[in-house]
Design a protein around this nucleic acid. Structure first.
Lengths: 335, 335
DNA sequence: TTGAAAGCGATACCAC
DNA sequence: GTGGTATCGCTTTCAA
């Protein structure tokens, strides 16, 4: 702490020997100000170390120069285990840094947190909202629609088509992954899915079915999980129990694939000779598994960046159209 | 968007048939208000869906009901690869949710972002600051000291002893880890360090030296890394080149240990028969490596929670003393 | 180009 | 217990 109380614009104006109006003009771009006055004000600002009060400014401009990122997930472990979120944040921040917007982070796990979220979204404290990871029937969806600021979704919510969202081509990516397994001669292909109350989980599962359908192969070897490592361990064990003859598995996330590999090793399966494994994400994990993981690359930072850009557009009153970012298969040693 | 413009407290007062002063009293706890008036105001608030403007409130109270978490790291990959950060955030958020404080997240990677950070910290927009992951000579340190709000550090900054910080027992944990290697008969023990311009990197390295020193074993098998997987791969390969006879390695982070395991496998080393490996962190990764990783557990969420609690104390004008959280060894199959 | 004055939406103090 | 009023620090008309 230092103390002394921050200087106000009036003190700047007084020191510079101009009116407050002039000082304000200089601070906000400097139009309609004589060069002489301009310089004096700048000098005063420098000397006083003046920084405008955002609260006062917000009060009159009705803007906050801040946006919120709400991550609405009942499971905080997901946030910590799944590198997806951090990467989205980095992508968002990259864009925000260019425009002097601040980022409020709101985790929506507990009821208490959701109430806080509700209040934040309606206390006109942010100029825009980004929503990540909506589960089915999420009350947040309705809440966001009522907010009087623009809203952008990261990942399409399940069952609805919001006006503005950014997503990865989950279905296409999954299809590619499973087609690769088919092409390389696998016949008894299983999948560990993501959460089926989220679009991302359903879409990747559909991709799995798409590929097997076209190939005329059965698609009944399915176990559900929720993106956590623990759930993946259970699902993989379950698959091996029910379908000991499986010769390949498409796992809907790298972090889960890493966990599944552990189970496969334990059960004596050789990768990829006995069982081929494909993941989804292409995060750092995919390189350090044993063997390195064939996986579907999705551009997560770009997803975050596009969300932020879209929000900025909307906040500026410009239109924006939803986006689906391409994915691509990266072949390594697990297939 | 919905529109219509949010209701003000005056409209609430008018609808309730009381003065604005009375309405305000109800909103802020309801002391000195008659039951009748109290109820009328509540009803009006409900009907109008009134939510106070935080900007207006901040302007007069000089508080913001918000705190900032600044993560000052030159390498954004760290934020995405190292689950540490997400987990600290969850810990912080848990505490914040209880007290209706909002969280501003500020990443301080680029020069541009650092300037933004500087502005945010001095625009009296937050009532407290948490600083994470300071590297040596970080200009942020000085900046934070000048801020006129309380500051709490997560992880001791290198070379200084700030008034308020929360850290894990990095040195003690590392010592335990290496002692375990010694106890189980390892003689040629190496280490892959964390970044040596951060206290966490130096402290864990010191723990390594402590243990070997007490055991009378040499401590020259050292390769530096910076917590990223790529750097760990390089460091591990380097160690094997220089000390092909090493029979154990203490790696300063689980994520790096996972990467190191890959290199060891590639070079034909059996784990743990030929080389024992110990990590640090005990995140989910440690369970899904092959084999599962012996590692030092550190309470990361607790670290975040304690940072937040400490900040709340300071903001309330109560004193607080720095904290070092204990670590403990978790033995799995890699040793 | 500049200065004066009117709010923005709340809190807090003051008499009543 | 209640209502009126000054005030927080800034932006933004409106005249000059």
């Amino acid at each position: 702490m230092a103390g002394a109380g921050q200087p106000t614009i009036d003190e700047v104006a007084r020191l510079a020997g101009v009116s407050r109006g002039t000082a304000s003009r200089v601070i906000n771009g400097g139009a309609h100000v004589s060069p002489a006055a301009h310089e004096k004000v700048l000098k005063a600002i420098e000397e006083l170390q003046y920084v405008p009060s955002r609260a006062a400014r917000s009060l009159v401009t009705q803007r906050n120069d801040a946006v919120a990122l709400a991550i609405s997930d009942a499971n905080p472990r997901l946030f910590t285990e799944h590198p997806f979120f951090s990467e989205v944040i980095v992508g968002i921040d990259t864009v925000l840094a260019e425009s002097d917007l601040e980022l409020m982070l709101v985790l929506g796990a507990s009821v208490r947190e959701r109430n806080r979220l509700r209040r934040q979204l309606s206390s006109r404290r942010v100029d825009g909202i980004m929503l990540l990871s909506l589960h089915g029937e999420d009350p947040l969806y309705e809440l966001a629609e009522q907010a009087d600021v623009p809203v952008v979704y990261g990942g399409k919510p399940l069952g609805v088509e919001p006006p503005h969202y950014v997503d990865a081509d989950n279905r296409g990516g999954a299809r590619q992954a499973v087609e690769h397994l088919v092409t390389t001669g696998r016949q008894r292909i299983a999948t560990v899915t993501g959460p089926m109350d989220m679009d991302v989980g359903v879409a990747r599962y559909h991709g799995f079915r798409d590929a097997l359908g076209s190939a005329g192969l059965p698609a009944h070897r399915v176990a559900n999980a929720d993106f956590t490592a623990a759930s993946a361990v259970r699902a993989m064990a379950d698959l091996l129990d029910r379908f000991p003859d499986l010769d390949a598995v498409f796992v809907a996330a790298d972090s889960m694939a890493a966990a599944a590999l552990g189970v496969l090793h334990e059960r004596g399966r050789r990768i990829p000779q006995d069982v081929a494994v494909v993941g989804f994400d292409d995060r750092a994990t995919a390189l350090t598994t044993h063997p390195p993981l064939t996986t579907v690359h999705q551009p997560v930072q770009a997803l975050g960046a596009e969300m932020a850009k879209m929000l900025l557009s909307l906040m500026a009153g410009r239109p924006a159209t939803s986006l689906i970012l391409p994915t691509r298969l990266v072949i390594r040693q697990s297939t």
